[in-house]
Simulated scan of single mutants.
Amino acid sequence: MSTGGGNRAIIAALAANIGIAVTKFVAFGLTSSSSMLAESVHSFADSGNQALLLLGGKRSRQPADAAHPFGHGRERYLYAFIVSIVLFSVGGLFALYEAWHKFQDPHAIDSWKWVPVVVLLAAIAMEGYSFRTAIKESNHIRGDQSWVSFVRNAKAPELPVVLLEDAGALIGLVLALFGVGMTLATHDGRWDAAGTASIGVLLVVIAAILAIETRSLLLGEAATKPDLAKIDAALVGDGVVSVIHLRTLHLGPEELLVAAKIEIEPAATAESIAAAINAAEARVRTAVPIVNLIYLEPDLRRTVTQA
């Protein structure tokens, strides 16, 4: 199981978010800006999320046991789903609550006016580095897919999660900078509240996208169409006449289960059937290396006769 690229992106995001979160919180303490508070909580939540992704990757490498005979590969999907919940509740809902509170009692930023602007600009630079790392690692496996297609179809959840989090963080920082900047320019705290509300809506939307995508992975997704075609082609040959039906299931990002009913020659012996199955399994594993479990059922294709 290879998670190196995902781990590099996660660690880069974690390092950036810890530093950003502390800096933003200090800036909030000096200015009482609601945008700064929302952004500091957002960064703390992102830091926790990256820790969850690392934990999920570690737990997914546990060996199979009697209770989990197919292994623990889906731990990565589970922890990615938890990330979406944390982002929705701790990040999005908190920001919306803080915006509502600020709208009730708007106040301008009267002290340390330069601090939030400097902090936000520095945070944009650090988040930009993290986002660049996620893009670089994603490009190794994205191929010619569009970014939307990559996020929707990726079987490994870490890179899409980090990409969406970093993109959301950068947009959120721009929204916070706009809210703070307008508050400083107009001395009207409602701009700060508006920036906070925009951050909350943004995080809720990103959390919903993550939840939808990881839900599909948790339910169990089939192999990609190119891999399905390779598996179907690899099964035929050396005693296997055709594939009657084929089912695949991702047990984890790099673990694929294949179950198929295959057509054999009517006169085949038990020995030749066993040899054909072994040869077919070897061809499938060569064609699609992530296939680690194969169950093949030999059968005869029955033709339907019309009266």
Rank of each mutant, 00 (worst) to 15 (best):
R152P: 01
H140E: 15
L159I: 14
L121S: 11
S146G: 15
G128Q: 12
E98Y: 02
K102S: 07
A154W: 04
D105V: 10
Y79K: 08
D105H: 15
I141C: 01
L159E: 08
A64R: 09
A156Q: 14
H72T: 02
F70L: 13
K155C: 04
F150I: 10
I82D: 00
L93N: 01
M126R: 05
L159P: 10
A123P: 09
W112L: 02
Y97V: 09
A64F: 07
G71E: 05
L159N: 10
A108E: 14
R74V: 07
V148G: 13
Q104W: 00
V118P: 05
F150Q: 06
P116S: 10
R132W: 11
E137H: 09
V83Y: 07
S138G: 10
A125W: 07
K113F: 00
P106E: 02
P157E: 12
G143V: 10
L121P: 04
I124V: 09
K155W: 00
I124D: 09
D65L: 01
S138R: 07
V117T: 15
Y129R: 03
K155R: 14
A67M: 12
Y77M: 04
G71Y: 08
A154Y: 11
R142A: 04
A108G: 11
H107Y: 05
W147F: 08
I82P: 01
N139C: 04
D110P: 00
K113A: 06
A67D: 15
E98F: 12
L96M: 12
L121I: 14
F150V: 08
S111W: 01
W112C: 07
G92I: 09
D144N: 14
V83T: 13
H140Y: 03
G143K: 12
A156D: 15
W114I: 12
Q145F: 02
Y97N: 06
V83R: 08
L159S: 02
A64M: 10
G128A: 08
A66I: 13
W112T: 02
A123F: 01
F131D: 05
F103M: 13
Y77V: 12
S130M: 05
G73T: 06
A156S: 15
V119A: 15
V86L: 14
H68E: 02
Y97W: 11
A125T: 07
A154N: 15
K113I: 01
I82G: 00
A95E: 00
D144K: 13
G73R: 06
V117G: 00
K102W: 06
L96T: 06
W100N: 00
E158M: 13
A134G: 13
